[in-house]
């Protein structure tokens, strides 16, 4: 134990840098193997282009402004759809969590709708909205709604009733009871919903953009397929992965900021 800790202390800073690199070792290794395999000609460039040619494609599309334009369009759709669906889900989750009357009126209906796979609505959505922005926003909002709704609902319902009782007897009015006791108590569960929703948000958007769009990353990939530009197809897939990771990082950061009281987030 002591020997190990001395060694650790001696190489403290270098070790910490090394620790941060560990998660990236595997992706780098795969990337390297892929590059070599492509250069050796293990598979045709039409099927799987080398990483370098994907980077080159990205550089070329950045030059024409096409890439930024499409990323921006996709990001905007994701964000707006998320805000609409998440906002409604959050509000309904709170309402049904706090009020039995509200829950009895709406929960059964919502549970029925929840069982419809939202991507099955694509044909209907195209009939209703064409391939307009509204179609994509509707699908994203619809997909995002349920994880946020369910987790907010259960978060509010799961708040320790003993704490609520304490708040009442200590003279908290309903507003203060909500902000001091119920909302913070429901927050961990709300964050679980947020993370699920972020995943569904990208998934929905990719599918919607590949099927019914005239702009955006998914459209860019479909166009590239028409012209057998595998490098551009791969590029859009990689950008989706990066955007997904970015959204998750933001959620994680928010979680650490607001849940610092939680034992799971202490000392880390």
């Amino acid at each position: 134990m002591t020997a190990v800790s001395t060694v650790r202390k001696a190489r403290g800073s270098r070790l910490r840098v090394g620790d941060n690199l560990v998660p990236w070792l595997l992706p780098l290794l795969i990337l390297g193997g892929w590059q070599i395999a492509a250069m050796v000609g293990l598979f045709p460039a039409r099927m799987l282009p080398a990483p370098t040619s994907i980077v080159a494609a990205g550089y070329r599309l950045l030059g024409t402004g096409e890439l930024q334009q499409n990323i921006w369009v996709s990001f905007w759709r994701a964000a707006v759809g998320f805000l609409i669906g998440g906002g409604i889900g959050f509000a309904l989750g709170l309402a049904n969590g706090l009020s039995n009357l509200s829950a009895r009126m709406t929960d059964t209906t919502l549970q029925m709708i929840r069982n419809i796979p939202h991507l099955a609505l694509i044909p209907l959505v195209i009939l209703w909205f064409g391939i307009d922005e509204a179609a994509k926003l509707f699908l994203v909002a619809f997909g995002v709604f349920f994880p946020i709704y369910l987790n907010t609902f259960h978060g509010v319902r799961g708040v320790d009733p003993q704490l609520v009782e304490m708040g009442r007897i200590y003279g908290m009015n309903p507003a203060r009871l909500f902000w001091r006791v119920i909302f913070p108590g429901a927050l961990p569960s709300i964050f679980v919903g947020l993370r699920f929703a972020l995943g569904i948000m990208w998934l929905t958007l990719i599918v919607a953009e590949t099927i019914a769009a005239s702009s955006g990353l998914g459209y860019m990939a479909m166009q590239a397929r028409e012209f057998m530009r595998t490098d551009v197809v791969m590029l859009s897939i990689l950008i989706y992965a990066l955007l997904g990771k970015l959204a998750d990082l933001c959620a994680g950061l928010l979680e650490r900021l607001t849940l610092s009281w939680h034992p799971a987030f202490q000392g880390g």
């Binding site: 003993q162 704490l163 304490m166 108590g185 009281w261 939680h262």
Partner: peptide, 18 residues
Amino acid sequence: GGDLRMMFQEPRLLPWAR
């Protein structure tokens, strides 16, 4: 009124408040 206070078997502190 506000003159009554109660202690329970559990402390019932808010975990998210210092």
